[in-house]
Nucleic acid binder design. Structure first.
Lengths: 337, 337
DNA sequence: GCTTGGCACTCCAGATGCCTGAGTGCCAGG
DNA sequence: CCTGGCACTCAGGCATCTGGAGTGCCAAGC
């Protein structure tokens, strides 16, 4: 059987449906794409595709719409990687290279992704787990209140305020600063935590040093603070179309929950773009949406992730290309910083 | 004439319309509120109110709806300050007191406001202009790359990465650090900028010191970084009701533009709650929305602002009370930190 | 002079019914 | 295996109708 033509029909259906947002019929299909066969033939193919669960019709005598399974097949086998135009590459580069600060990089990435894909963009900060400690700074705000500033290799800067039981004089402060840095500088977060726990004074209770190290350990191992995510392009939800309550609201809710966002981004290795379509995701309410995501980071192991969220009916090739490009660019920036 | 009754009618109309989202008629009015008069009388009053432009009817033979002017009169003269219940006060306190870090305070405030008002909440970080410099830390990442960390009295921490033309050794770094801090610690941002500009080495070009001070001056006077705003509760937009494209989309767009947000919050003195209703705002597209905002900060001069955005048809007394309470709470926290 | 009941009028919203066009499935012939 | 033809289905648009909620005005009453 002409299996390839059937797949071509599927591809055409996906493309047309994405473009028009309307169920696509056999006649329109042969007209808009140059399949050299008659509508009747296409109808037969469609029937077969429907049997396989790749497409469906909203009601009898309406056109066909791809199912989640259909989209899946489309992205897995029918998508040709659409490279970004050089103009686009240039635009990305010039927009991103103005950023030096990590915050800047993240914020710009979000805007860029949202802009490129016309969808909601999500960018996760580099995880703490994949960073090493570059420096710890201890600043006395008053004599019983310290600000700890933790500077990580990825450019992240975490702050923490601690209240001391007893005042600490300048010399003690300097000692503390050097001993802390000696213990943890250059270490991974995991190693730093154990190094801090092993510090001689750690055993004693309620000493300033003990309080500070405890706060640092808490800051480093606290998963909540690890989950920093930035969202942008929410106004693109307006393009979502019909069914506000049922589709947009759950998304807005999800976007407010960092935990949910992180689950959506999932784990992807750097460089590889993951696509999660409709029901494949962990949340029932988000069944009408897809997520295109990628890890980023210098090596193979990602240190963070970014992606876009949109309706299942979305431009997968375009989104995948954009996510891929931005992830690569961010990786590059982080590499040499 | 019975002016007070007319106002009572207006108040009743506003309350009912806010509650039901539907134009309110004369009969329903006398039934739901205990006005001791007949529907016919109320109709006369309504006609008068309509002449004054305080209410309007969507079409002949429909109930009445308050106009912007009507809401304005309502908030100015007909609103009795509804104090928060002690339970609510307690909830606010317990939720907020877990925050120490400024970031924490801001994030929690947003959530809290969104929760209390069931609307979109906006919280601005303390402005740089109203802060004094507490400390400047200079960390060498490599020998030609420094991370400047600027710690302000309000708890804000700004970072900036600078690239040096020539390597800087440890001693020079220490000198730099102390001289910077001697120059600016305790100064207001404005004074700090001039102090930095007056540093002896500033004149020389391309020295490390010159590069660093230039970066600091830029960081302190850069208005873009001054405009940090956090938004939350966007999923409450779903309660907005009808007209997605026309109402919700412009709001989502506005929420992505920091500049617009700041304009919306406007300037309010600390402690006083401002209400901007519909067309009173600077943006035509946001004519269906109102903003309830307040400055916060220890003294009378606000160091930041926060508020909520919602449909003109919103619960003004409740929102005003919530905004007021949160602003006061945030002021309190910042006072003793 | 304000209030009130009555009454005629308006007009939206929802229900009903009809019709058209797009699209399908199937069959018989090439 | 493709194709043209044909009967069938059904959503969506359009017109029509009706009920009900609400109004404005007027004349009578307190």
């Amino acid at each position: 059987m002409h299996d390839e033509r059937r797949l071509a029909v599927l591809r055409a259906i996906v493309q047309d449906y994405v473009a028009t947002r309307e169920p696509v019929g056999s006649r329109a299909l042969v007209e808009r794409h140059g399949l050299g066969v008659s509508p009747a033939t296409v109808r037969n193919d469609m029937a077969a595709l429907e049997d396989e669960g790749l497409i469906a019709q909203p009601h009898t005598s309406a056109g066909r719409v791809p199912t989640d399974k259909g989209y899946r097949l489309f992205v897995d086998r029918l998508t040709t990687v659409k490279p970004m135009s050089t103009a686009e590459r240039r635009a990305i580069a010039s927009f991103m290279e103005e950023a030096h600060d990590l915050d800047d990089v993240v914020r710009r990435s979000v805007r860029l992704l949202a802009q490129l894909t016309q969808q909601v963009a999500i960018v996760q900060y580099p995880t703490l787990a994949s960073s090493t400690v570059r420096h710890i700074e201890v600043v006395a705000l008053t004599d019983t209140r310290l600000l700890l500033v933790l500077i990580l290799s990825t450019g992240r800067v975490e702050q923490r305020l601690v209240e001391l039981p007893d005042p600490l004089d300048d010399d003690a402060l300097a000692d503390l600063r050097t001993s802390l840095n000696r213990a943890v500088t250059g270490e991974t977060i995991g190693a730093a935590v154990t190094a801090l726990a092993d510090l001689p004074e750690q055993g004693l209770h309620r000493t300033p040093v003990a309080v500070v190290t405890a706060a640092l350990i808490e800051a480093m191992s606290n998963h909540r603070s690890d989950q920093r995510v930035v969202v942008g392009g929410t106004s693109n939800l307006a393009r979502f179309g019909d069914g506000f309550e049922s589709t947009v609201k759950p998304i807005l809710e999800a976007l407010e929950e960092q935990v949910v966002l992180l689950k959506l981004l999932g784990e992807a290795s750097s460089g590889a773009v993951t696509v999660r379509i409709g029901h494949e995701g962990p949340y029932e309410e988000l069944s009408g949406t897809s997520v295109v995501a990628s890890g980023y980071g210098p090596g193979v192991h990602p240190i963070g992730a970014l992606g876009v969220v949109g309706p299942t009916r979305m431009d997968y090739p375009g989104s995948m290309a954009a996510v891929h490009a931005v992830a690569r660019y961010v990786s590059g920036i982080l590499e040499d910083s």
